[in-house]
């Protein structure tokens, strides 16, 4: 009981301190851009009763799930293929590096030109942003499989696919997970940016509209909601990766 309390305090004291300080400073200041946390909290109540706000949240969640899923699946598939084939890797590495070098927000105008500003356009934006980091980390990890494992899979007379699925991909687990995690942060970023650019839908659009109409408290509700979504996704990812590859974390001594 006492230990629980201590570990609870260990994680909560700092956020509580920050929020309290914010509350104290903002309620004694005239600056309208930093409303007190109590005000923001009060605003959530009416903000989330508006149907279009809850729809914005649902749209954002849908965009990020669909975009992330499509992008990371494509990244894993092409990363595995390029990683296990020297010729394909040599052919596609320059173009992949070039595509990756264009920041995702800079790709948005092209995607809007091709797909418009609807939901499928935003999903495509997220998918493309996720694709490259996942593809590159997967490709590198698969290409650098330990020679001992590859020798052994030859001795077992494993063919290309068996060796890929049962040796190279599991051996690359750690790097692939790291790539997927980085891609998740990028997905949240790109989702918000794509919503801010003219779509009128989603949390990003909500924030931009609130700011443009001086609904500063509403803007803060939107920003904090995006933060909560990002946090839940990160925590969810951490939970899932430990379910999917428990051996990896245990073998590295990671709790």
């Amino acid at each position: 009981m006492k230990n629980r309390l201590i570990s609870f305090l260990k994680f909560t004291w700092f956020p509580v301190l920050v929020v309290t300080a914010w509350q104290f400073v903002s309620s004694n200041a005239a600056n309208p851009f930093f409303p007190a946390p109590t005000k923001i909290y009060a605003a959530t109540k009416y903000v989330f009763t508006a149907q279009w706000v809850t729809q914005s949240l649902a749209t954002s969640l849908y965009t990020i799930f669909a975009g992330y899923l499509i992008g990371s699946l494509l990244g894993l598939v092409f990363g595995s293929i390029f990683g296990s084939n020297n010729l394909l890797r040599e052919i596609f590495t320059p173009i992949t590096n070039f595509m990756r070098s264009i920041p995702s927000p800079a790709k948005i105008p092209v995607i809007i030109a091709l797909f418009g500003i609807g939901l499928s356009s935003r999903i495509t934006t997220v998918a493309i942003a996720v694709l490259f980091p996942v593809l590159l980390t997967t490709m590198r990890a698969i290409a650098t499989t330990d020679s001992h494992l590859l020798d052994y899979s030859k001795i077992l007379k494993f063919g290309y696919f068996r060796s890929l699925i049962q040796v190279r991909i599991p051996a690359a687990t750690g790097e692939i997970l790291a790539g997927l995690q980085v891609a998740l942060q990028i997905a949240v970023l790109v989702m918000v940016v794509s919503e801010m650019l003219g779509s009128g839908k989603g949390l990003g659009a909500f924030v931009i509209r609130a700011q443009a109409t001086y609904m500063i408290t509403d803007m803060w509700v939107g920003i904090l909601t995006i933060g909560v979504v990002g946090l839940i996704l990160t925590e969810g990812f951490g939970f899932l990766e430990r379910k999917l590859a428990p051996w990896y974390f245990s073998s590295k001594g990671i709790k």
Binding site: H148, D151, Y152
Partner: peptide, 21 residues
């Protein structure tokens, strides 16, 4: 020309040739 069937092969680096998963 390729590994024969039923070949036993053990190297020094057991930690690299066993599958940790």
């Amino acid at each position: 020309r390729e590994p024969i069937e039923n070949l036993g092969f053990v190297t020094q680096d057991y930690s690299r040739s066993l599958f940790p998963w």
